[in-house]
Design a binder for these strands. Structure first.
Lengths: 151, 151
DNA sequence: CGCTTTTACATGCATATGCATTGAAATTCT
DNA sequence: AGAATTTCAATGCATATGCATGTAAAAGCG
């Protein structure tokens, strides 16, 4: 049986390293000129909407993928709508709900920012980790996120 | 020579997985009752201050470890000071700078929250990854964060 | 079926955040 | 040394965020 204290430490060290790594990379990424008109949080919303079938995504479902309170997200979507990037329409199956979709302009902007963003990510990560290490990191974080999300 | 497109994809998939994993875990962690009086961002400041020699940390240096603008951090420190958790005193070597230290109350609070926080982290991560995997994740993110931070 | 409870999103309001800028001290340049 | 530039933190101001709550639709229940 493994030592309790060591187990606590291994977990918190992993989280600390993951978190700090994320902060460091995020600080770099969000300085990129691509995020001049739309910040990373807003981009993340556009990105999430771009990755879902044309039916659209409900606000609550979107909210699960984003680090933000429901009211804040509601207002951000409102702003994105007034910028003509997102469309909110009532869900036919549930009159309380709202279905969100990208407008054409929204989709276009997401793709444009996405292309530059991906290149920047590549510039930051590829010099640091080998392809195998990148895949290993992907596997570990995918597994971890999945396990925590469904528990 | 590796394929350019594949390399772009590997890097952005790794970042996407890391980022989403971080969001999922963070959403869980910040709901913990330990963060009732002091939120995670504030705790992170206390934590960073707890990890530095008694001389204190300069605002700008602290800012590099935290995902926040300099003015926001300046004001957060102001609030933490008015709560009696942090002390700001002029840096003897540089009259422009401020050196931040935890007060006794601040250190005590950080430790108290830290203990519960560590336990919660353990509850979330340990069922998902083996000790070896946790160490592997620590190694990869430490390396990545280090490389990006110093580039 | 009517009544209670739960779910999905929006709003009022206080507070936190970021951008642009300032103030002041250190560093650089000539 | 003196002027120009850079660096560190604080502040004005507009905006974004979160908490508590409101509104309305759906689900549960006797």
């Amino acid at each position: 049986m493994p030592d309790e204290a060591a187990s606590l430490r291994e977990a918190s060290e992993a989280w600390e390293a993951l978190f700090r790594c994320q902060v460091t990379i995020m600080r770099r990424l969000q300085k990129h000129p691509a995020f001049k008109g739309v910040n990373m949080r807003e981009y993340d919303v556009l990105f999430n909407l771009s990755r879902c079938p044309s039916g659209g995504l409900r606000l609550g479902d979107l909210n699960e993928h984003v680090l933000m309170s429901q009211p804040s997200l509601s207002r951000m979507v409102e702003r994105l709508e007034s910028k003509g990037l997102v469309e909110r329409r009532p869900d036919p199956c549930d009159q309380r709900a709202v279905r969100l979709t990208l407008t054409d302009r929204g989709r276009e902007l997401q793709r444009k920012i996405g292309r530059e963003h991906v290149r920047h990510i590549h510039e930051l990560l590829s010099p640091a980790l080998s392809p195998e290490q990148l895949r290993e990191l992907t596997a570990l974080t995918t597994r971890l996120g999945g396990a925590v999300g469904s528990s």
